[in-house]
Design a binder for these strands. Structure first.
Lengths: 139, 139
DNA sequence: CTACACCTGTGTCTTGGACACAGGTCAAGC
DNA sequence: GCTTGACCTGTGTCCAAGACACAGGTGTAG
């Protein structure tokens, strides 16, 4: 299979497949005639797995570890559980950060609605930004 | 001021200051004697502004534009308003994505609690991951 | 004068692909 | 057979926003 054929039914892009190939998750063989990378059914299977894992928040590096573990014939499940727990913590952190940022942004937009535009002065670049953090910033 | 002194009262790191310097947002002068970068009060002022803007979700590139506009003596306020509106949209998107991911992760962890560890088979790398997306994946 | 803690600039690394680019492939038309 | 044009390919580079490593400089306590 060529990369475009491999990509077809899976929901992903050629660039993504090339990236996974580059980091060694997929192992196509190089065609003698045209240099194209030829993917087999095992690659197709691995790609499907990779995409599933990515959708669950595993990093590409995580997936590499999992695949390596599984390649030894051992259960990757305990590893998978541990990693996901860690990734969930991180996602929780990102979530809280994003939530807080979103609130700050909305709050700023609301607050700015009644404020005029001003030219910068020697000690004020944009009074909207500088005024906002002065009023609601506690750190 | 040396970089560590500049950083001291602001809540940031030397690496961050060096980065802003690298991209041209800060303009210290190079000391003749030891090659150290020497920051002035204007840099301190700019840094404070940059950190405020970053906390509101502006990208470093955005801030560069804003600073450039303000350097011409013109109001940066309209630009600031437009950019923040756009960044809010993006943040909203990230927020939704993170929210959905968090739910998937928690759901997976919960679902896996009753499932055993299994060794990989020829067509199954990790039944937890592959089983999860099969059961709850709609795309 | 020396030991040692801390500070410095420069250069590289990170994530997960996206994008640009020059060239190759393939089917349609002449 | 040959050519045109659409699409496809691999390789290389680029992105954000710093973090980290490293070799060397500085300053101070003894």
């Amino acid at each position: 299979m060529k990369v475009s054929e491999l990509v077809k039914e899976m929901k992903t892009t050629p660039d993504t497949v090339r990236y996974y190939t580059r980091v060694g998750l997929l192992s196509p063989v190089k065609s003698e005639t045209n240099g194209y990378k030829h993917y087999g059914v095992d690659d197709q299977h691995r790609l499907r797995f990779i995409l599933s894992a990515r959708k669950l928040g595993f990093s590409v590096n995580d997936i590499d570890q999992i695949l390596t573990e599984a390649a030894k014939g051992k259960t990757a499940c305990p590893l998978v559980r541990v990693i996901l727990e860690k990734r969930l913590e991180e996602t929780e952190e990102v979530f809280q950060q994003t939530l807080a940022l979103r609130i700050r942004m909305k709050s700023a937009i609301g607050e700015w609605q009644t404020k005029p535009n001003k030219a910068p002065t020697g000690h004020m670049i944009c009074h909207l930004i500088e005024g906002f953090n002065a009023s609601s910033g506690k750190d």
